[in-house]
């Protein structure tokens, strides 16, 4: 992947963070709020693999943490691991299936929020947390389809990104 395309993905995540700040709460349905940054991150990671996905995860985690304003470490590590694990799926999925973004984003939302929960538990509000994550994961899944195929339209996940790793060449 070229530097320009990496920067393009970083810019897409930045736009997602603007939407997260300005739009997410206003389009809440039944208390469910989408997480634009996480949804975009998962779509990106699945398409570009775990190496570059991890780099983008770091950026996504940083943007989320800046907006959250607290628990920087937990926020960033949960996004980092989610991006890495979703990126590991790259070689095992049919990229043009419409079910891929739906399923991966749904599960990745539970994974990410679960990791965050482990690092910053909120046991008194477990029931609220379950409802919140369920709503968020459904909302994220629906949003993931246009985001995922938008990225595919920009040729992400093509041959240029398939399994390429600079480490493989240098080792």
């Amino acid at each position: 992947m070229t530097t320009a395309r990496s920067l393009l993905l970083a810019a897409i995540l930045l736009v997602a963070s603007w939407l997260q700040a300005g739009l997410s709460a206003r389009i809440a349905l039944f208390h469910a709020r989408p997480d634009f940054i996480l949804t975009t991150l998962v779509c990106i990671s699945v398409l570009i693999g775990n190496l570059y996905g991890t780099v983008q995860s770091l950026w996504a985690g940083f943007l989320t943490a800046v907006l959250a304003g607290f628990n920087y470490g937990s926020v960033m590590v949960s996004r980092l691991l989610t991006g890495f694990l979703c990126g590991s799926l790259q070689q095992h999925i049919i990229q043009d299936s419409p079910f891929i973004p739906l399923i991966t984003v749904f599960l990745a939302t539970w994974l990410c929020e679960g990791l965050y929960f482990l690092m910053a538990p909120n046991l008194h509000y477990l029931r609220w947390w379950t409802h919140m994550v369920l709503g968020e994961s459904i909302y994220n899944s629906i949003l993931s389809v246009p985001i995922y195929f938008g990225l595919r339209a920009l040729k992400f996940g093509g041959e240029a990104d398939d399994g390429f790793s600079p480490f493989v060449e240098t080792i």
């Binding site: 989320t64 959250a68 607290f70 910053a120």
Partner: peptide, 14 residues
């Protein structure tokens, strides 16, 4: 209000 509830785990605004 620049950002409203930007992080799902906390009800906050910027």
């Amino acid at each position: 209000v620049l950002a409203l509830k930007p992080f799902s785990e906390r009800d906050s605004a910027i």
